[in-house]
């Protein structure tokens, strides 16, 4: 699409009503949910995995808490709460990172990508909305795990605006990186480094499973550069109710800036990938 083509797309998109956009978004969510639910074994195993992971974290939590290392004192929480919040928040954001790439790849493989992009929805918006289904499923799974943990384990959580804001901004940032990844996949078809780098970095440096305080100083510096660290800090503090609200402002601002930059970069990369594939005639290839 040329620059003029983009102008047309934006003009028509502006003319769309919010209701029309929501309708398309909802259609993608329903499609993903119906497809997911049709794989009964996958659905059952997914639910079983939720329960098993809770039991595992509970036992690991007992060991860590009994050891009394003191690493978690500043969080005012048990290890079970610490790791469950980390896994859920990171899980939702990781879905943002992977869902767009995975959706584009699946549409390529099942031969529906070309049909989607010949529809009346502007292509960048279409590709963004198409990833929402998996994101919604991940969000529902995370909420279910959190509810289960609160009900069954000794995980006391208080809903806080700061925690919700941290999760939303973190997920938005990861969605931005996910859109970059989807743009690369439109061209490369298989293999892109973006999600691998962010997935691996978040697990090691973001404090999903352990506090970043135990990292050596040079790694702690790197840890401060990724959004996972700030998002988990705010989410844990917010959900435990053990924090000074003023201390959460800076990480939230950082998350907001990261999310904005990542979303802009994601949309630009997605547009580039689409234009490249259209010129090369490889949109439907996989």
């Amino acid at each position: 699409m040329s620059a003029a083509g983009h102008g047309d797309a934006l003009a028509l998109w502006r003319g769309s009503t919010l209701a029309a956009v929501l309708r398309v978004a909802w259609a993608f969510v329903v499609r993903s949910a119906a497809t997911y639910a049709s794989y009964r074994a996958k659905l059952s195993l997914g639910l079983a995995s939720l329960v098993l992971s809770l039991v595992t974290f509970s036992f690991v939590g007992r060991v860590v808490d009994a050891a009394g290392s003191g690493f978690l004192d500043r969080y005012g929480t048990s290890y079970t709460s610490f790791v469950i919040v980390g896994v859920i928040v990171h899980g939702i954001a990781a879905a943002g990172l992977s869902s767009f790439r995975a959706t584009v790849r699946r549409e390529q493989l099942q031969g529906t990508l070309e049909l989607l992009v010949t529809s009346r929805v502007p292509v960048p918006a279409l590709l963004v909305l198409s990833g929402l289904g998996e994101l919604a499923i991940a969000g529902a799974g995370g909420a279910a795990l959190l509810a289960l943990a609160s009900a069954v384990l000794d995980v006391r959580l208080c809903l806080s605006l700061a925690a919700v804001a941290a999760v939303v901004l973190y997920a938005a940032a990861m969605c931005g990186f996910g859109l970059v990844s989807a743009g690369v996949i439109l061209v490369s078809k298989e293999g892109e480094p973006v999600s691998w780098v962010f997935g691996a970095a978040a697990g090691l440096l973001g404090g999903v499973y352990f506090p970043v305080d135990i990292l050596p100083p040079w790694l702690r510096g790197l840890s401060a550069l990724i959004p996972t660290t700030h998002a988990l800090r705010v989410a844990r503090a917010g959900l435990s109710g053990y924090h000074d609200p003023a201390s959460l402002v800076r990480p939230l601002v950082l998350l907001g800036l990261t999310a904005s930059a990542a979303l802009v970069a994601g949309l630009l990369t997605l547009g580039w990938g689409y234009r490249h594939a259209r010129r090369a005639g490889t949109l439907g290839e996989y």
């Binding site: 119906a34 497809t35 099942q110 031969g111 070309e114």
Partner: peptide, 14 residues
Amino acid sequence: GVSLGTKRSFYWRL
């Protein structure tokens, strides 16, 4: 309205 005639162009589970 477009039909590309490829066999796999539907959501198979739906």
